[in-house]
Design a protein around this nucleic acid. Structure first.
Length: 127
DNA sequence: CGTGTGACCGGCG
DNA sequence: ACGCCGGCCACAC
């Protein structure tokens, strides 16, 4: 597989000399700064497969078993909604984690001022 | 091998 | 404002 992750990112190799799509996703998510969020589509776009946002979501399914830990709560959909909150230990955990980072959530689902906190890997990371 | 399934997205009516 | 649909593709049966 083509290596599309910057060499200095903490990519975890699961296969010898190869980087999997999931690993790429996890490497990016780990780069999201505290108090910032990004979207599934933005990650997919950065990986060069912008139509595969669903894959990013699918990757997050397995994220909880990854080490080091993945700040999965910083990944939401393009509208800033916590569509993945059901996959956390409790349905409110995702919101609580964001709240700890001073990100306010409305009605337990939508991030307030989402644009303000949005972190685009294509903008912030270099190839 | 084949097939179904997504924590999605953008476009169209 | 809504809903539907097609694209996408790694992974687990």
């Amino acid at each position: 597989m083509k290596k599309i992750i910057p060499h200095n990112l903490p990519v975890v190799k699961t296969k010898k000399d190869s980087f999997t799509f999931f690993d790429d996703v996890y490497a990016i998510v780990r780069q999201i700064p505290k108090g910032r969020v990004t979207s599934y589509g933005a990650i997919a776009n950065y990986l060069g497969t912008k139509l595969s946002a669903r894959m990013v979501g699918w990757a997050m399914n397995a994220a909880h078993s990854q080490k080091p830990k993945i700040p999965a709560h910083r990944v939401v959909n393009r509208n800033g909604m916590l569509t993945g909150r059901m996959h956390f230990a409790t349905p409110t955990l995702m919101e609580e984690l964001l709240l700890k980072e001073k990100i306010m959530v409305k009605d337990n689902i939508t991030i307030i001022n989402f644009e303000k906190y949005f972190w685009d890997p294509a903008q912030e990371l270099e190839f």
